[in-house]
Design a protein around this nucleic acid. Sequence first.
DNA 1: TTGTAAGCGTTATCAG
DNA 2: CTGATAACGCTTACAA
Lengths: 341, 341
Amino acid sequence: MGKPTVHDIAREAGVSLATVDRVLNARPGVREKTAARVHTAIEKLGYVRDIYAANLARQRNYNFVFILPDGQSQFLHSMRDAIAEARVGLLADRSDIRTITVQLRDPAAMIRTMHRIEHARVDGVAILASETPMVRDMIAHFKERGISVVALVTDQPNSERDHFVGIDNLAAGRTAGHLMGRFARRPGRVAVVLNTTQARDMVDRRLGFDEVLTRDFPHLVALPSLEGRDDHERTAQVLNACLDSVGDVSGIYCVGAGMRGVTQVVAARGLTGKVTVVGHDLTPHTRAALEAGTVDVIINQNTGHLVRSAARVLRARCDGAPVIASQEKIRIEIVLKENLP
Amino acid sequence: MGKPTVHDIAREAGVSLATVDRVLNARPGVREKTAARVHTAIEKLGYVRDIYAANLARQRNYNFVFILPDGQSQFLHSMRDAIAEARVGLLADRSDIRTITVQLRDPAAMIRTMHRIEHARVDGVAILASETPMVRDMIAHFKERGISVVALVTDQPNSERDHFVGIDNLAAGRTAGHLMGRFARRPGRVAVVLNTTQARDMVDRRLGFDEVLTRDFPHLVALPSLEGRDDHERTAQVLNACLDSVGDVSGIYCVGAGMRGVTQVVAARGLTGKVTVVGHDLTPHTRAALEAGTVDVIINQNTGHLVRSAARVLRARCDGAPVIASQEKIRIEIVLKENLP
DNA sequence: TTGTAAGCGTTATCAG
DNA sequence: CTGATAACGCTTACAA
């Protein structure tokens, strides 16, 4: 009738509940022959364990920490909001997620954070940080202590992270390149703005962008990167300087943060609808810019998906369960004003 | 220490477990005064019920049925695959989802299906069907029997469905219009192919498409709809006839099924890379067409998201829980070959 | 109107 | 090595 339970297995195999449980959880103290009988019964009845009942009995709760860099970028705000929004739903799922903000350039702060987490019975952490030796060490430290780690948004490919939750930035850059190529209103040069040339995501995006532009749209020429350093004033300033010297561009690609500086310049110079602007990350600001036409298209990674996926993956790691790749793949979203969510 | 449980509430309010439970589930047979005491305790301790423990005790299982039309479209295949893929995960979540295929034009079959579902202790159904009086009646029938209903992919706005899971087709059409406008390589006419002018989704998409084209891209003129009737042969035939008579088009918008007919014509006439092709729904075929360059862009609704969202919504309805709108909103995805998942 | 006690499927402790 | 038995947090007959 209903699904088979441990009781059914026990009866079928002619053993007690405890033995079934030992076999189920691969605990020692069961003769091979007995274990075999249990396994046969499991197969025969098609048993599948009720993970919620198990978690209830175990009183298992999951403590996860999201480590975010300090900073005021709109994307980070959006991540924080997404974490807060996901929190309540996850709590009902026995997962408590907390956010810790850390100054990545301050070694002392990093170490403090590390110890704080280590002593707080944390089961897993999701780290959003640029790729540095210190972050790598932090990840190794956690892994040594049996704490699961996922890299969030920015991969940490040379670390021991269990998983990466985020988009393929090379592909994102290619997508930007294709859109710039098709959307640009005339041949010409394309200004490229990014916050820093140090970060791998930025480099990857730029690489993908250049690849597509060079191959498929030779009438567009990408200019050297302008560094905004996460500061709108500076972004506006370097972009203005570039436009002054180049005279005219047919597109602007904003690779990372700095959209506020870009839209400010575009609006001030009356370039709306003349220069094609491609940027990343949907925020209240870029949403308004899309609606106003200052920005043509935004390439987005859904922060809600990022957070929920990170939580699901951490849980799967803790349970030793497999992750369903298709469900955890973060899509590169293309957002026009017509398909704004 | 741990989260408060019903025991804590009972102790705090000076009542028994049963009374707490009655209050929690709003069952009758509790004096107002007593109920108030319990509520105070709940507030004070910040109690939040463990829904998994509750479901365990209740032995609650959810039986959901997805009703799909018969038909061989790639999109339907993709839906079936998505349901099969979601099935195992949902089963672990106490939700059993089954698929029933029904011939929408056969009243007898519809009625058989209705009764079959009605007698199978089904808790909710997701219906993917065009908007007809018979479907509307079916929904009313289910609702009368306390079965939750969500409309899937195609809304049934004049029915009693509890929820609609799908995209805004007007917005999807606008998105297609914008992309056609920006992607088209030269001014000219645009052929519009759809399977039938009877279905509301098709009409909505066409409306949105025309709206944007007329307003923002007057250099492109959309031609009258060509009806493919879900048949590639016929689609190819009417499209060929159209191209023969018009002489030259700068774009083709395939509003619904029929992409195989379209790509066949585009390839045969050597129009790849010359005519801009915009279509809907990512399938193995459209994926290959994107990669080959026969199709420029696909507007997609993620079938995995559709299925999981429908299941979550049905469950929420059964539990009387609210649905989290932001999580259930199905995005209008834009897929280029660069951001193919 | 309220309380007691058994039980949901799993785990864990402690004897045997 | 194996088996009773009591939890886990919640629901629900059945009594009182």
